[in-house]
Design a protein around this nucleic acid. Structure first.
Length: 461
RNA sequence: GGAGGGGUGGCCGAGUGGUUGAAGGCGCACGCCUGGAAAGUGUGUAUGCGGGAAACCGUAUCGCGGGUUCGAAUCCCGCCCCCUCCGCCA
Protein backbone atom coordinates (compact mmCIF):
# COMPACT_ATOMS: atom_id res chain seq x y z
CA UNK A 1 0.00 0.00 0.00
CA UNK A 2 1.34 3.35 -0.97
CA UNK A 3 1.63 6.38 1.24
CA UNK A 4 -0.11 9.18 -0.63
CA UNK A 5 2.35 11.63 0.88
CA UNK A 6 5.18 9.76 -0.74
CA UNK A 7 3.42 9.85 -4.09
CA UNK A 8 2.78 13.56 -3.67
CA UNK A 9 6.47 14.19 -3.18
CA UNK A 10 7.82 11.56 -5.57
CA UNK A 11 5.31 11.51 -8.39
CA UNK A 12 8.04 10.98 -10.98
CA UNK A 13 9.55 7.96 -9.29
CA UNK A 14 6.06 6.58 -8.77
CA UNK A 15 5.17 6.89 -12.44
CA UNK A 16 8.49 5.48 -13.52
CA UNK A 17 7.81 2.37 -11.47
CA UNK A 18 4.32 2.02 -12.91
CA UNK A 19 5.62 2.33 -16.42
CA UNK A 20 8.13 -0.44 -15.77
CA UNK A 21 5.25 -2.68 -14.74
CA UNK A 22 3.44 -1.71 -17.92
CA UNK A 23 0.83 0.40 -16.13
CA UNK A 24 -0.74 3.71 -17.11
CA UNK A 25 0.07 6.95 -15.26
CA UNK A 26 -2.08 7.48 -12.20
CA UNK A 27 -0.56 10.14 -9.98
CA UNK A 28 -2.64 13.02 -11.37
CA UNK A 29 -5.86 11.23 -10.50
CA UNK A 30 -4.53 10.16 -7.12
CA UNK A 31 -3.42 13.66 -6.24
CA UNK A 32 -6.81 15.02 -7.24
CA UNK A 33 -8.42 12.51 -4.89
CA UNK A 34 -5.94 13.58 -2.24
CA UNK A 35 -6.78 17.24 -2.68
CA UNK A 36 -10.45 16.44 -2.37
CA UNK A 37 -9.75 14.43 0.75
CA UNK A 38 -7.74 17.18 2.39
CA UNK A 39 -10.30 19.80 1.55
CA UNK A 40 -13.07 17.66 3.04
CA UNK A 41 -11.04 17.02 6.20
CA UNK A 42 -10.30 20.70 6.54
CA UNK A 43 -13.94 21.71 6.31
CA UNK A 44 -15.04 19.18 8.86
CA UNK A 45 -12.25 20.16 11.23
CA UNK A 46 -13.14 23.79 11.00
CA UNK A 47 -16.67 22.98 12.07
CA UNK A 48 -15.39 20.77 14.87
CA UNK A 49 -13.08 23.46 16.11
CA UNK A 50 -15.90 25.98 16.40
CA UNK A 51 -18.15 23.44 18.07
CA UNK A 52 -15.49 22.54 20.65
CA UNK A 53 -14.74 26.15 21.46
CA UNK A 54 -18.43 26.99 21.86
CA UNK A 55 -18.96 23.98 24.10
CA UNK A 56 -16.22 25.11 26.41
CA UNK A 57 -17.73 28.56 26.57
CA UNK A 58 -21.10 27.06 27.38
CA UNK A 59 -19.55 25.20 30.27
CA UNK A 60 -17.95 28.41 31.51
CA UNK A 61 -21.13 30.43 31.04
CA UNK A 62 -23.20 27.93 32.96
CA UNK A 63 -20.69 27.89 35.78
CA UNK A 64 -20.92 31.66 35.84
CA UNK A 65 -24.71 31.44 35.91
CA UNK A 66 -25.08 33.25 32.61
CA UNK A 67 -27.94 31.21 31.20
CA UNK A 68 -28.71 33.65 28.41
CA UNK A 69 -25.18 33.45 27.04
CA UNK A 70 -25.25 29.69 27.25
CA UNK A 71 -28.46 29.55 25.28
CA UNK A 72 -27.10 31.86 22.63
CA UNK A 73 -24.04 29.66 22.23
CA UNK A 74 -26.18 26.56 22.03
CA UNK A 75 -28.08 28.15 19.19
CA UNK A 76 -24.82 28.87 17.45
CA UNK A 77 -23.72 25.25 17.74
CA UNK A 78 -27.07 24.08 16.45
CA UNK A 79 -26.46 26.20 13.39
CA UNK A 80 -22.98 24.77 12.89
CA UNK A 81 -24.37 21.29 13.08
CA UNK A 82 -26.91 21.79 10.39
CA UNK A 83 -24.68 20.70 7.57
CA UNK A 84 -22.49 18.57 9.81
CA UNK A 85 -23.76 15.26 8.40
CA UNK A 86 -22.96 16.30 4.86
CA UNK A 87 -19.45 17.33 5.89
CA UNK A 88 -18.92 13.98 7.55
CA UNK A 89 -20.29 12.15 4.58
CA UNK A 90 -18.04 14.08 2.22
CA UNK A 91 -15.00 13.36 4.37
CA UNK A 92 -15.73 9.67 4.61
CA UNK A 93 -16.36 9.39 0.92
CA UNK A 94 -13.19 11.24 -0.04
CA UNK A 95 -11.05 9.10 2.25
CA UNK A 96 -12.65 5.88 1.04
CA UNK A 97 -12.14 6.83 -2.59
CA UNK A 98 -8.46 7.52 -2.11
CA UNK A 99 -7.94 4.40 0.00
CA UNK A 100 -9.65 2.21 -2.55
CA UNK A 101 -7.46 3.63 -5.29
CA UNK A 102 -4.29 3.14 -3.25
CA UNK A 103 -5.22 -0.40 -2.21
CA UNK A 104 -5.12 -1.67 -5.77
CA UNK A 105 -1.77 -0.20 -6.78
CA UNK A 106 1.05 -2.74 -6.99
CA UNK A 107 4.44 -2.21 -5.41
CA UNK A 108 7.28 -0.56 -7.31
CA UNK A 109 10.08 -2.80 -8.59
CA UNK A 110 13.58 -2.09 -7.31
CA UNK A 111 15.95 -0.46 -9.76
CA UNK A 112 17.93 -3.65 -10.31
CA UNK A 113 14.87 -5.64 -11.41
CA UNK A 114 15.00 -6.27 -15.15
CA UNK A 115 12.29 -4.69 -17.29
CA UNK A 116 10.06 -7.02 -19.18
CA UNK A 117 6.54 -7.95 -20.17
CA UNK A 118 6.11 -11.53 -18.96
CA UNK A 119 7.96 -14.64 -17.82
CA UNK A 120 9.98 -14.78 -21.04
CA UNK A 121 11.88 -11.72 -19.89
CA UNK A 122 12.93 -13.18 -16.55
CA UNK A 123 16.68 -13.37 -16.16
CA UNK A 124 18.52 -16.47 -15.07
CA UNK A 125 21.09 -15.61 -12.43
CA UNK A 126 22.34 -19.04 -11.36
CA UNK A 127 22.10 -22.69 -12.17
CA UNK A 128 22.84 -25.55 -9.80
CA UNK A 129 23.22 -29.25 -10.42
CA UNK A 130 23.56 -31.30 -13.54
CA UNK A 131 20.35 -32.78 -14.95
CA UNK A 132 20.67 -36.52 -14.89
CA UNK A 133 20.96 -38.35 -18.18
CA UNK A 134 18.54 -41.20 -18.60
CA UNK A 135 19.06 -44.35 -20.63
CA UNK A 136 15.29 -44.55 -20.95
CA UNK A 137 12.61 -41.96 -21.63
CA UNK A 138 11.82 -40.35 -18.30
CA UNK A 139 8.14 -40.27 -17.41
CA UNK A 140 6.11 -37.46 -15.96
CA UNK A 141 5.31 -37.72 -12.28
CA UNK A 142 1.66 -38.67 -12.74
CA UNK A 143 2.60 -41.65 -14.85
CA UNK A 144 5.17 -42.67 -12.29
CA UNK A 145 2.78 -42.23 -9.38
CA UNK A 146 -0.11 -44.00 -11.06
CA UNK A 147 2.23 -46.70 -12.25
CA UNK A 148 3.28 -47.27 -8.65
CA UNK A 149 -0.37 -47.50 -7.70
CA UNK A 150 -0.08 -44.86 -5.02
CA UNK A 151 -1.30 -41.75 -6.83
CA UNK A 152 -4.97 -41.61 -7.74
CA UNK A 153 -6.42 -38.69 -9.67
CA UNK A 154 -9.62 -40.49 -10.55
CA UNK A 155 -10.54 -41.14 -6.96
CA UNK A 156 -9.77 -37.51 -6.17
CA UNK A 157 -12.00 -36.39 -9.02
CA UNK A 158 -14.88 -38.45 -7.68
CA UNK A 159 -14.49 -36.82 -4.30
CA UNK A 160 -13.62 -33.29 -5.25
CA UNK A 161 -13.36 -32.80 -8.99
CA UNK A 162 -10.43 -31.58 -11.03
CA UNK A 163 -7.17 -30.36 -9.53
CA UNK A 164 -7.10 -32.73 -6.60
CA UNK A 165 -5.09 -35.84 -5.93
CA UNK A 166 -5.09 -38.74 -3.52
CA UNK A 167 -1.65 -39.96 -2.57
CA UNK A 168 -1.37 -43.19 -0.68
CA UNK A 169 1.12 -45.47 1.02
CA UNK A 170 4.75 -44.51 0.45
CA UNK A 171 3.77 -41.47 -1.63
CA UNK A 172 1.64 -40.10 1.18
CA UNK A 173 4.58 -40.64 3.44
CA UNK A 174 6.99 -39.12 0.94
CA UNK A 175 5.02 -35.89 0.99
CA UNK A 176 5.06 -35.85 4.78
CA UNK A 177 8.77 -36.69 4.77
CA UNK A 178 9.54 -33.81 2.44
CA UNK A 179 7.67 -31.32 4.59
CA UNK A 180 9.29 -32.56 7.76
CA UNK A 181 12.74 -32.54 6.21
CA UNK A 182 12.29 -28.95 5.06
CA UNK A 183 10.98 -27.74 8.39
CA UNK A 184 13.80 -29.46 10.25
CA UNK A 185 16.40 -27.82 8.03
CA UNK A 186 14.88 -24.35 8.36
CA UNK A 187 14.42 -24.57 12.10
CA UNK A 188 17.63 -26.46 12.81
CA UNK A 189 20.07 -24.82 10.42
CA UNK A 190 18.53 -21.59 9.21
CA UNK A 191 17.19 -20.08 12.40
CA UNK A 192 13.50 -20.01 11.55
CA UNK A 193 10.88 -20.46 14.22
CA UNK A 194 8.30 -23.08 13.38
CA UNK A 195 4.73 -21.81 13.57
CA UNK A 196 1.41 -23.53 13.28
CA UNK A 197 -0.91 -20.76 12.14
CA UNK A 198 -4.62 -20.73 11.39
CA UNK A 199 -5.53 -21.76 7.87
CA UNK A 200 -8.74 -19.74 8.00
CA UNK A 201 -8.27 -16.00 8.21
CA UNK A 202 -10.31 -12.83 8.15
CA UNK A 203 -10.57 -10.19 5.46
CA UNK A 204 -8.10 -7.97 7.29
CA UNK A 205 -5.34 -10.54 7.12
CA UNK A 206 -5.93 -11.10 3.42
CA UNK A 207 -5.85 -7.36 2.88
CA UNK A 208 -2.63 -7.07 4.87
CA UNK A 209 -0.64 -9.28 2.54
CA UNK A 210 -2.56 -7.87 -0.46
CA UNK A 211 -4.56 -10.88 -1.63
CA UNK A 212 -7.50 -8.53 -1.12
CA UNK A 213 -9.09 -6.54 -2.54
CA UNK A 214 -7.70 -7.29 -5.99
CA UNK A 215 -7.44 -11.05 -6.07
CA UNK A 216 -10.73 -12.25 -4.66
CA UNK A 217 -11.37 -14.58 -7.52
CA UNK A 218 -8.19 -16.55 -6.81
CA UNK A 219 -9.34 -17.40 -3.30
CA UNK A 220 -11.51 -19.91 -1.59
CA UNK A 221 -13.81 -18.76 1.17
CA UNK A 222 -14.86 -20.80 4.13
CA UNK A 223 -18.51 -20.56 4.87
CA UNK A 224 -20.23 -20.98 8.17
CA UNK A 225 -23.71 -22.31 7.69
CA UNK A 226 -26.40 -20.34 9.43
CA UNK A 227 -28.76 -22.05 11.79
CA UNK A 228 -32.24 -22.55 10.52
CA UNK A 229 -33.52 -19.61 12.54
CA UNK A 230 -30.71 -17.31 11.49
CA UNK A 231 -31.22 -18.20 7.86
CA UNK A 232 -34.95 -17.66 8.16
CA UNK A 233 -34.50 -14.24 9.77
CA UNK A 234 -31.88 -13.26 7.21
CA UNK A 235 -34.10 -14.28 4.34
CA UNK A 236 -37.05 -12.38 5.73
CA UNK A 237 -34.95 -9.32 6.33
CA UNK A 238 -33.52 -9.41 2.84
CA UNK A 239 -36.94 -9.97 1.35
CA UNK A 240 -35.80 -13.29 -0.09
CA UNK A 241 -37.65 -16.48 -0.61
CA UNK A 242 -37.33 -18.27 2.72
CA UNK A 243 -36.68 -21.51 0.91
CA UNK A 244 -33.24 -20.17 0.04
CA UNK A 245 -30.99 -20.30 3.02
CA UNK A 246 -28.08 -18.06 2.51
CA UNK A 247 -24.79 -18.77 4.18
CA UNK A 248 -22.48 -16.09 5.46
CA UNK A 249 -18.86 -16.08 4.52
CA UNK A 250 -16.76 -15.77 7.60
CA UNK A 251 -13.27 -16.76 6.57
CA UNK A 252 -10.83 -17.08 3.73
CA UNK A 253 -8.80 -20.23 3.20
CA UNK A 254 -5.18 -19.20 3.05
CA UNK A 255 -3.62 -19.40 -0.42
CA UNK A 256 -0.21 -19.49 1.27
CA UNK A 257 1.15 -19.43 4.82
CA UNK A 258 2.59 -16.04 3.91
CA UNK A 259 -0.80 -14.67 4.93
CA UNK A 260 -0.98 -15.84 8.55
CA UNK A 261 2.77 -15.70 9.17
CA UNK A 262 3.19 -12.15 7.92
CA UNK A 263 0.03 -11.01 9.65
CA UNK A 264 1.36 -12.28 12.96
CA UNK A 265 2.99 -8.87 13.36
CA UNK A 266 0.01 -6.86 12.17
CA UNK A 267 -0.86 -3.92 14.41
CA UNK A 268 2.28 -4.61 16.41
CA UNK A 269 5.11 -2.35 17.42
CA UNK A 270 8.11 -4.64 17.65
CA UNK A 271 11.36 -3.90 19.34
CA UNK A 272 14.30 -3.64 16.98
CA UNK A 273 16.12 -6.30 19.00
CA UNK A 274 13.47 -8.82 17.87
CA UNK A 275 14.40 -8.33 14.23
CA UNK A 276 14.90 -10.06 11.95
CA UNK A 277 11.99 -12.27 12.88
CA UNK A 278 12.17 -15.51 10.92
CA UNK A 279 9.20 -17.85 10.81
CA UNK A 280 8.41 -21.00 8.92
CA UNK A 281 5.25 -23.02 8.61
CA UNK A 282 4.18 -26.14 6.78
CA UNK A 283 0.57 -25.70 5.76
CA UNK A 284 -1.96 -26.64 3.19
CA UNK A 285 -2.66 -23.85 0.75
CA UNK A 286 -5.87 -23.35 -1.17
CA UNK A 287 -6.16 -21.65 -4.52
CA UNK A 288 -9.04 -21.32 -6.90
CA UNK A 289 -6.72 -21.12 -9.92
CA UNK A 290 -9.43 -19.07 -11.56
CA UNK A 291 -7.16 -17.62 -14.22
CA UNK A 292 -5.39 -20.87 -14.99
CA UNK A 293 -8.07 -22.80 -16.84
CA UNK A 294 -6.46 -25.36 -19.11
CA UNK A 295 -3.02 -24.85 -17.61
CA UNK A 296 -1.24 -27.82 -16.07
CA UNK A 297 -4.46 -29.76 -15.93
CA UNK A 298 -2.76 -33.09 -15.49
CA UNK A 299 -0.87 -34.07 -12.41
CA UNK A 300 0.08 -32.38 -9.19
CA UNK A 301 1.68 -29.22 -10.56
CA UNK A 302 -1.38 -27.05 -10.14
CA UNK A 303 -3.83 -28.13 -7.50
CA UNK A 304 -6.62 -26.47 -5.56
CA UNK A 305 -5.03 -27.77 -2.38
CA UNK A 306 -1.34 -28.32 -1.86
CA UNK A 307 1.18 -28.46 0.91
CA UNK A 308 3.90 -25.87 1.18
CA UNK A 309 6.63 -24.95 3.60
CA UNK A 310 6.77 -21.19 3.75
CA UNK A 311 9.45 -18.81 5.01
CA UNK A 312 8.62 -15.34 6.27
CA UNK A 313 11.03 -12.73 7.58
CA UNK A 314 10.20 -9.46 9.27
CA UNK A 315 13.13 -7.06 9.17
CA UNK A 316 14.22 -3.47 9.46
CA UNK A 317 14.36 -1.50 6.22
CA UNK A 318 18.15 -1.70 6.36
CA UNK A 319 18.18 -5.50 6.56
CA UNK A 320 15.61 -6.50 4.00
CA UNK A 321 17.66 -6.81 0.83
CA UNK A 322 20.33 -8.87 2.51
CA UNK A 323 17.62 -10.99 4.09
CA UNK A 324 16.15 -11.58 0.66
CA UNK A 325 19.38 -13.14 -0.54
CA UNK A 326 19.64 -15.17 2.63
CA UNK A 327 16.07 -16.43 2.40
CA UNK A 328 16.48 -17.46 -1.21
CA UNK A 329 19.65 -19.27 -0.15
CA UNK A 330 17.68 -21.17 2.50
CA UNK A 331 15.23 -22.36 -0.14
CA UNK A 332 18.10 -23.32 -2.42
CA UNK A 333 19.62 -25.41 0.37
CA UNK A 334 16.53 -27.61 0.30
CA UNK A 335 16.94 -28.39 -3.37
CA UNK A 336 20.65 -28.89 -2.95
CA UNK A 337 20.16 -31.30 -0.06
CA UNK A 338 17.71 -33.25 -2.20
CA UNK A 339 20.18 -33.09 -5.08
CA UNK A 340 17.59 -31.61 -7.40
CA UNK A 341 18.98 -29.50 -10.26
CA UNK A 342 17.50 -26.04 -10.42
CA UNK A 343 17.99 -22.58 -11.76
CA UNK A 344 17.45 -19.28 -10.10
CA UNK A 345 15.79 -16.48 -12.01
CA UNK A 346 15.02 -12.92 -11.08
CA UNK A 347 11.53 -12.03 -12.22
CA UNK A 348 11.17 -9.15 -14.61
CA UNK A 349 8.89 -6.21 -13.86
CA UNK A 350 6.02 -7.71 -15.82
CA UNK A 351 6.02 -11.06 -14.02
CA UNK A 352 6.38 -9.93 -10.44
CA UNK A 353 3.69 -10.30 -7.83
CA UNK A 354 1.54 -7.41 -6.69
CA UNK A 355 3.24 -6.80 -3.35
CA UNK A 356 6.80 -7.51 -4.40
CA UNK A 357 9.73 -5.19 -4.99
CA UNK A 358 11.93 -7.99 -6.23
CA UNK A 359 11.40 -11.70 -6.63
CA UNK A 360 13.63 -14.70 -7.18
CA UNK A 361 12.03 -17.84 -8.49
CA UNK A 362 13.70 -21.18 -8.10
CA UNK A 363 12.85 -23.52 -10.93
CA UNK A 364 13.51 -27.20 -10.44
CA UNK A 365 14.42 -29.50 -13.28
CA UNK A 366 11.66 -31.92 -14.28
CA UNK A 367 13.05 -34.59 -16.59
CA UNK A 368 9.58 -35.86 -17.48
CA UNK A 369 8.61 -32.44 -18.82
CA UNK A 370 12.13 -31.61 -19.90
CA UNK A 371 11.69 -28.19 -18.32
CA UNK A 372 12.56 -26.13 -15.32
CA UNK A 373 9.41 -25.45 -13.31
CA UNK A 374 8.81 -23.02 -10.49
CA UNK A 375 9.14 -24.58 -7.07
CA UNK A 376 9.87 -21.53 -4.96
CA UNK A 377 9.29 -17.83 -5.14
CA UNK A 378 11.07 -15.48 -2.75
CA UNK A 379 9.95 -11.87 -2.57
CA UNK A 380 10.95 -8.79 -0.69
CA UNK A 381 7.99 -6.48 -0.20
CA UNK A 382 9.59 -3.50 1.51
CA UNK A 383 7.03 -1.70 3.68
CA UNK A 384 4.20 -2.37 1.23
CA UNK A 385 2.50 -5.02 3.37
CA UNK A 386 3.60 -3.41 6.63
CA UNK A 387 1.55 -0.32 5.80
CA UNK A 388 -1.50 -2.42 5.09
CA UNK A 389 -1.05 -4.27 8.36
CA UNK A 390 0.25 -1.34 10.38
CA UNK A 391 3.24 -3.43 11.44
CA UNK A 392 5.99 -1.33 12.94
CA UNK A 393 9.10 -1.44 15.09
CA UNK A 394 10.78 0.94 17.43
CA UNK A 395 14.45 1.50 16.72
CA UNK A 396 16.93 0.63 19.44
CA UNK A 397 17.69 3.75 21.42
CA UNK A 398 20.56 5.91 20.31
CA UNK A 399 21.39 3.66 17.40
CA UNK A 400 21.18 5.14 13.96
CA UNK A 401 21.64 3.10 10.87
CA UNK A 402 24.85 3.99 9.12
CA UNK A 403 24.89 7.32 10.87
CA UNK A 404 21.66 8.30 9.14
CA UNK A 405 19.12 10.16 11.18
CA UNK A 406 16.64 7.31 11.14
CA UNK A 407 15.90 7.31 14.82
CA UNK A 408 13.61 10.05 16.00
CA UNK A 409 12.06 7.62 18.46
CA UNK A 410 9.01 7.08 16.29
CA UNK A 411 7.88 3.64 15.22
CA UNK A 412 8.85 2.80 11.67
CA UNK A 413 7.30 0.31 9.29
CA UNK A 414 8.98 -3.06 9.14
CA UNK A 415 9.93 -4.73 5.90
CA UNK A 416 8.38 -8.09 5.05
CA UNK A 417 9.69 -10.97 2.99
CA UNK A 418 8.20 -14.27 2.04
CA UNK A 419 9.39 -17.28 0.15
CA UNK A 420 8.50 -20.87 -0.44
CA UNK A 421 10.95 -23.13 1.22
CA UNK A 422 9.74 -24.98 -0.83
CA UNK A 423 6.44 -26.08 -2.38
CA UNK A 424 6.07 -29.63 -1.07
CA UNK A 425 3.74 -30.96 -3.75
CA UNK A 426 6.02 -29.78 -6.51
CA UNK A 427 9.05 -31.05 -4.61
CA UNK A 428 7.44 -34.47 -4.67
CA UNK A 429 6.90 -34.14 -8.39
CA UNK A 430 10.58 -33.29 -8.76
CA UNK A 431 11.71 -36.20 -6.62
CA UNK A 432 9.57 -38.67 -8.54
CA UNK A 433 10.80 -37.48 -11.91
CA UNK A 434 14.47 -37.07 -11.03
CA UNK A 435 14.76 -40.26 -9.01
CA UNK A 436 12.75 -42.55 -11.26
CA UNK A 437 14.19 -45.79 -12.49
CA UNK A 438 13.62 -47.73 -15.70
CA UNK A 439 11.49 -50.33 -13.90
CA UNK A 440 9.05 -47.67 -12.68
CA UNK A 441 10.37 -47.55 -9.15
CA UNK A 442 11.66 -44.43 -7.43
CA UNK A 443 14.82 -44.21 -5.38
CA UNK A 444 14.36 -42.34 -2.11
CA UNK A 445 16.79 -39.39 -1.89
CA UNK A 446 19.39 -39.89 0.83
CA UNK A 447 18.24 -36.86 2.78
CA UNK A 448 14.71 -38.24 3.05
CA UNK A 449 15.51 -41.77 4.11
CA UNK A 450 15.52 -41.00 7.83
CA UNK A 451 12.03 -39.60 7.34
CA UNK A 452 10.90 -42.66 5.40
CA UNK A 453 11.77 -45.17 8.07
CA UNK A 454 14.94 -46.08 6.20
CA UNK A 455 13.10 -46.93 3.00
CA UNK A 456 15.45 -46.70 0.02
CA UNK A 457 13.13 -47.39 -2.85
CA UNK A 458 9.45 -46.91 -3.62
CA UNK A 459 8.05 -49.63 -5.79
CA UNK A 460 4.76 -51.16 -6.75
CA UNK A 461 3.58 -53.72 -4.22
C1' G B 1 -25.69 -23.79 23.21
C1' G B 2 -26.57 -21.94 28.72
C1' A B 3 -24.75 -18.52 32.78
C1' G B 4 -21.51 -14.79 34.04
C1' G B 5 -17.13 -11.26 33.73
C1' G B 6 -14.19 -8.07 30.78
C1' G B 7 -11.95 -4.76 26.53
C1' U B 8 -8.73 2.65 28.81
C1' G B 9 -1.69 4.91 26.64
C1' G B 10 4.51 0.24 25.55
C1' C B 11 2.48 -2.41 30.19
C1' C B 12 -0.50 -2.30 34.88
C1' G B 13 -4.41 0.56 36.50
C1' A B 14 -7.93 4.98 38.06
C1' G B 15 -11.73 7.36 36.09
C1' U B 16 -20.13 7.46 35.49
C1' G B 17 -21.35 14.04 31.37
C1' G B 18 -17.67 19.93 31.26
C1' U B 19 -9.57 22.55 30.41
C1' U B 20 -9.51 14.19 30.71
C1' G B 21 -5.17 13.02 25.83
C1' A B 22 -6.84 10.92 30.02
C1' A B 23 -4.81 10.45 37.74
C1' G B 24 -1.28 6.97 39.85
C1' G B 25 2.32 3.23 39.07
C1' C B 26 5.74 0.27 36.00
C1' G B 27 8.87 0.54 31.95
C1' C B 28 11.79 3.73 28.90
C1' A B 29 14.88 8.37 27.80
C1' C B 30 17.69 12.41 29.55
C1' G B 31 19.71 15.05 33.88
C1' C B 32 21.18 15.32 39.16
C1' C B 33 23.39 12.49 43.03
C1' U B 34 27.98 8.59 43.07
C1' G B 35 34.90 7.14 42.43
C1' G B 36 31.51 3.78 39.55
C1' A B 37 26.85 1.45 40.09
C1' A B 38 22.32 0.42 42.77
C1' A B 39 19.00 3.18 45.50
C1' G B 40 17.18 8.05 45.55
C1' U B 41 15.68 12.37 42.87
C1' G B 42 14.06 15.88 38.76
C1' U B 43 12.21 16.32 33.87
C1' G B 44 10.20 14.09 29.70
C1' U B 45 7.73 10.09 27.58
C1' A B 46 0.78 7.68 22.52
C1' U B 47 -0.86 7.54 17.50
C1' G B 48 -3.30 9.03 12.90
C1' C B 49 -4.78 13.12 10.04
C1' G B 50 -4.80 18.54 8.49
C1' G B 51 -1.99 23.19 8.60
C1' G B 52 3.15 25.24 9.31
C1' A B 53 10.05 26.31 7.17
C1' A B 54 9.95 25.45 12.35
C1' A B 55 8.35 26.25 17.22
C1' C B 56 3.79 24.88 17.29
C1' C B 57 -1.56 24.99 16.26
C1' G B 58 -6.02 22.35 15.04
C1' U B 59 -8.63 17.71 14.85
C1' A B 60 -9.71 12.67 15.82
C1' U B 61 -8.74 8.39 18.73
C1' C B 62 -10.38 5.12 25.90
C1' G B 63 -12.60 -2.61 21.29
C1' C B 64 -15.81 -1.20 16.57
C1' G B 65 -20.22 1.29 14.62
C1' G B 66 -24.51 4.16 15.56
C1' G B 67 -27.53 7.34 19.03
C1' U B 68 -28.68 11.06 23.10
C1' U B 69 -26.33 16.01 24.42
C1' C B 70 -24.16 22.59 23.47
C1' G B 71 -20.46 18.88 25.35
C1' A B 72 -19.43 11.46 25.98
C1' A B 73 -13.91 7.23 28.21
C1' U B 74 -18.36 8.24 31.18
C1' C B 75 -25.55 7.54 29.32
C1' C B 76 -28.46 4.39 25.37
C1' C B 77 -28.54 0.72 21.08
C1' G B 78 -26.11 -2.81 17.78
C1' C B 79 -21.72 -5.56 16.66
C1' C B 80 -16.74 -7.68 17.43
C1' C B 81 -13.11 -9.79 20.49
C1' C B 82 -11.19 -11.97 25.10
C1' C B 83 -11.86 -14.66 29.76
C1' U B 84 -14.43 -18.08 33.57
C1' C B 85 -17.96 -22.04 34.67
C1' C B 86 -21.45 -25.72 32.61
C1' G B 87 -23.02 -28.55 28.20
C1' C B 88 -21.55 -30.48 23.35
C1' C B 89 -17.46 -31.75 20.17
C1' A B 90 -11.95 -33.36 17.29
Amino acid sequence: MYDIKWIRENADAFEKGRKRRGLEPLSTQLLALDDARRAAIGELQKAQERRNAASKEIGAAMKAGDAAKAEALKAEVALIKENWPSLEEAERYAIAELDAALASIPNTPLAEVPDGADEHDNVEVARWGEPRTFDFTPKEHFDIGEGLGFMDFEAAARLSGARFVVNKGPLARLERALAQFMLDLHTGEHGYMEVNPPLLVRDDAMFGTAQLPKFREDQFGAVRQLTYDEAFDAAVEAGDDVSKFRPTMDYWLIPTAEVPLTNLVRECILDESQLPLRMTAGTYCFRAEAGAAGKDTRGMIRQHQFYKVELVSITTPEQSLEEHERMTGCAEKILQALDLPYRKVVLCTGDMGFASQKTYDLEVWLPGQGKYREISSCSVCGDFQARRMNARFRAASGATAGGAATNDGKPRFVHTLNGSGVAVGRAMVAVLENYQEADGSVTVPLALRPYMGGLTKIERT
